[in-house]
Design a protein around this nucleic acid. Structure first.
Lengths: 155, 155
DNA sequence: CTTGCTGCAAAAGTTTTGCACACGT
DNA sequence: ACGTGTGCAAAACTTTTGCAGCAAG
């Protein structure tokens, strides 16, 4: 990839194969555009949005339409490769999930800083709650809002 | 209120006062429209969206514009009375938080059924994670996706 | 070849904003 | 009176869709 991100080729190949298999199973096609989009998604380290993908692909000289990105992202989500993450409600954000520990987010409302974290105890609680309701947890989203000590006291 | 919801008057009065205080502190005004919106919000038992409020207010004979609802909702969120909850990313959903235990959601992806739950252990984890990063948790959103046993096995 | 895919532009849907007038404080 | 609020309609933004030509299996 053109940018400095860790475009981990070790993960590109297997994911490419997984995506192809997913598509074939549904009678869908693996196109150059879809390959490019997957490649760009893999170059992203954290959370991203559609406009970012579009921008980076244009930077790298690929010409893919926004409509195609939207259409492909839906498939990537269904294939279990990426996940929709909700940070603000106006715009959809996504992150890679395949081969990664699920990352959750701690948002500092004072600084708008976003800290990623993973916590095993959280997964346990998640699985327990799902089981209590007769379900099996397959994913989750967890977002914590925090303030730094000072502002917590004021007002 | 006109509908069958539990329009708990025991909670309306104090919240009205809280909202007035919040507005005054910021040099904002308490108008009839804002009172109506707060009242309608309190009549909602779970998650709601702006169009729902608009519809119910019109049903009840109140005429408030969508723009005003959007503007007021921002203040209600800042006042800590309601919270934005994200179920799907296209549209903002809100729920009352004042005087309630924070409710989280377990979504069954097979049936689209949504189960509300509250779990104290989750709050502990939340507070611990925030503290680990030097912050104080003031809120959160937790959404679990689950499948029922059968579908978990297939594919 | 058949079926799905792409780009474009238009459409759809939610949220925001500019403006003139009305209303709390 | 002053400074906000309100409704309306238009704007802004993200996402979806219809269509004609193109490409994968």
């Amino acid at each position: 990839m053109a940018d400095g991100q860790s475009s981990d080729n070790a993960i590109l190949e297997p994911l490419c194969a997984i995506f192809r298999r997913f598509l074939k199973k549904r009678g869908l096609k693996f196109t150059a555009e879809r390959a490019t989009i997957l490649d760009t998604v893999l170059s992203k380290d954290g959370v991203f949005e559609v406009d970012e993908l579009l921008f980076e692909m244009h930077q790298a000289g690929y010409r893919v339409s926004k409509a195609t990105i939207y259409r492909t992202i839906k498939h990537l989500v269904e294939a279990g490769i990426i996940q929709e993450v909700l940070l603000d409600s106006r715009q959809a954000h996504y992150q890679l999930i395949y081969g990664r520990k699920p990352m959750d987010h701690l948002v500092c409302v004072d600084s708008d800083e976003i800290i990623e974290f993973h916590d095993d105890a959280l997964i346990e609680i998640r699985d327990r709650i799902a089981k209590q309701h007769g379900l099996t947890a397959v994913g989750h989203r967890f977002l914590i809002y925090g303030v730094n000590g000072k502002s917590a006291a004021k007002e």
